[in-house]
Computed example of a mutant assay.
Amino acid sequence: MSTPAHALLSAARAQAATDPVWQEEYRRWRPPVERAIAWLVAKGNRRIPYRGVIANNIWLHHRAAALNLRRLINLGLTRTSNTWRLIPANA
């Protein structure tokens, strides 16, 4: 049984298998995406903690914001007087 979605998926798989530009982009972006997903689900966060879409959506956005803030702090985010600045560690 062939549906339009199946045909589209088959075409995308064929392109992924043969197109060197697609493969280069995939190799470039896969590691950072996998790393971000690993950070997101680390420390017992593989399952959603609440019942209901709204509560879990809020939790997910807070988790992502916390991870982004932690990453910025590790990259050198500091508060100077009344502003925030990103000062690289090697500067």
Score class of each variant (00 low, 15 high):
Met1Ser: 15
Ser2Glu: 15
Ser2Ala: 15
Pro4Phe: 12
Ala5Ser: 12
His6Ser: 15
Ala7Trp: 04
Ala7Gln: 12
Leu8His: 10
Arg13Val: 04
Ala14Asp: 12
Gln15Ile: 07
Gln15Thr: 03
Gln15Asn: 11
Gln15Asp: 01
Gln15Ser: 12
Ala16Cys: 01
Ala17Thr: 06
Thr18Ile: 07
Asp19Asn: 15
Pro20Thr: 06
Trp22Gln: 06
Trp22Asn: 05
Trp22Glu: 11
Gln23Pro: 03
Gln23Tyr: 03
Glu24Thr: 08
Glu25Met: 11
Glu25Pro: 01
Tyr26Trp: 14
Tyr26His: 14
Tyr26Pro: 01
Arg27Asn: 13
Arg28Glu: 12
Arg28Met: 12
Arg30Glu: 12
Pro31His: 09
Pro31Glu: 13
Pro32Ala: 10
Pro32Asp: 07
Pro32Lys: 04
Glu34Cys: 06
Arg35Phe: 05
Arg35Met: 01
Ile37Arg: 11
Ile37Thr: 01
Ala38Gly: 04
Ala38Glu: 13
Ala38Phe: 00
Ala38Tyr: 03
Ala38Asp: 14
Trp39Pro: 05
Trp39Cys: 04
Leu40Asp: 04
Leu40Asn: 03
Leu40Arg: 09
Val41Gly: 00
Ala42Gly: 02
Asn45His: 15
Arg46Pro: 05
Arg47Asn: 06
Ile48His: 00
Pro49Cys: 08
Tyr50Ala: 15
Gly52Val: 04
Gly52Trp: 05
Val53Met: 08
Ile54Tyr: 07
Ala55Trp: 02
Ala55Ile: 06
Ala55Asp: 10
Asn56Glu: 07
Asn56Phe: 00
Asn56Met: 02
Trp59His: 09
His61Lys: 09
Arg63Gly: 00
Ala66Trp: 04
Ala66Tyr: 02
Leu67Met: 09
Leu67Gln: 06
Asn68Met: 13
Asn68Tyr: 00
Arg70His: 08
Leu72Phe: 11
Leu72Gly: 02
Ile73Phe: 09
Asn74Thr: 08
Leu75Pro: 01
Gly76Asp: 09
Thr78Asp: 10
Thr78Lys: 14
Arg79Ser: 04
Thr80Ser: 10
Thr80Asp: 10
Ser81Glu: 14
Thr83Ile: 08
Trp84Leu: 15
Ile87Thr: 13
Pro88Gly: 03
Asn90Tyr: 05
Asn90Gly: 02
Asn90Leu: 08
Ala91Pro: 01
Ala91Ser: 12
